[in-house]
Design a binder for these strands. Sequence first.
DNA 1: TTTGTTTATATGTTTGTACATTATAAACCA
DNA 2: TGGTTTATAATGTACAAACATATAAACAAA
Lengths: 242, 242
Amino acid sequence: MKYSIDHKSPIPLHIQAEELLRKLISQDEYQNGRLLPNEVELAKLLAISRTTLRQAINKLVYEGLLVRKKRAGTKVNQSTVSSKSNNWLSFSQEMKLRGINIKNFELHVTWVFPDETLANFFEIKTDKKVLKMERVRGRNDGPFVYFISYFHPRIGLTGDEDFKRPLYELLEQDYSTIASLSKEEISAHAADALIAEKLQIKVNEPVLFRKRFVFDQGERPIEYNLGYYKADSFVYTVESRR
Amino acid sequence: MKYSIDHKSPIPLHIQAEELLRKLISQDEYQNGRLLPNEVELAKLLAISRTTLRQAINKLVYEGLLVRKKRAGTKVNQSTVSSKSNNWLSFSQEMKLRGINIKNFELHVTWVFPDETLANFFEIKTDKKVLKMERVRGRNDGPFVYFISYFHPRIGLTGDEDFKRPLYELLEQDYSTIASLSKEEISAHAADALIAEKLQIKVNEPVLFRKRFVFDQGERPIEYNLGYYKADSFVYTVESRR
DNA sequence: TTTGTTTATATGTTTGTACATTATAAACCA
DNA sequence: TGGTTTATAATGTACAAACATATAAACAAA
């Protein structure tokens, strides 16, 4: 096993430490209930200061992956993580699982300049084009979702890919880009003219709006996804435990 | 205005600082898009070290209440009300955290016979009455959520409780009932006459609908909760990792 | 006007140091 | 044996001091 923290890397030490801990935990180095070495020890092992190490541990504690206890040490707590990770199927896989056959109504791919928000999320300039994918999907009885996806140039997509394949499979297998973290925001809106047309509903009818920010393992942004779901055709479920 | 941090208090300084910041933000000292004083300044003002202050700020940043930007400063981000899936705070606590003062517009408590669905979830007969609580809550500028809650008879609520207290605190402290698991379903709907009236919007305007099933530690059902949120005033956020 | 360069100023990173708090194991005593 | 005290080993809190890095704004050059 290698405790590889590169002091000359531009990546901050506490980020490296965080990643390393995640890796160790996921690779059964420290499985479920195990204790980590104590902070002073571990800091020495990684050749970083205790403060820096704590910065890394803190983040994992906040996420619930680690649990600290005085005198007892810091424990791995993988139980909660598993319950959250069920929403990681791609859309079509998820639908198939529910016994719904998905049809692509539209599928456009273009290169566009990012707006302020997007450039900010991708951490790029607004004059650098990004790949935009639009797609309308649904069942035989009509469309029920309108997706807009933007992909980070870093990934290397050309626009000629077969987007009918499950997206995250494509990214993983052909571009070794692994979607590892997603932050989603869900809200309700009234359909504007565009959305109404795409979903074949009336203007101002309610839609469920899902904004999704997807990151790779290094927490670098890879996809920005907007989804407009026809009301009553989509339910978002969340299960949480404390 | 008082920047009151008590160095002799047993409460850690960074916790005090965190609380103080929350208070300042909620009390319009630093409203919405405002910048905080810079870290060095603020640390001097509070008479704590920059490191300690950062500890406090970091927490608020993690919650999304503050946004840092190099060179620009640290900004208050109260824009949308959001709910974190992991977070087990009650509604009003969560809102207070976001610096929003919650007002109760309506609060009714009655005993009703459960319908089929509810009886099924509670695993009781339909001739056994359950406690129903309705409440409309919002800010000064109007209501933004209409809640309906049903409580399992097992808990022992009489209906005379002080429902202005945080709900889960009440259940925990007075009825030793600990909410431990929740399953939620989120969807978009058009407001019907009742919802429209409660939220002071027009019929057919979009609302975010959240259905919540709450269980205790033994996975026994304790609460069934329906929430109708005015569109654009509520964003549900989910973070998931694989 | 545009483009490049500098500079001031904010947050970001990292270390070293010191002492406080607390859960628990070990030692002690009744 | 069983309870109580004490020591210890872990995390928790706090500060000071550098240096790194990003960027807005001012300025200079093309």
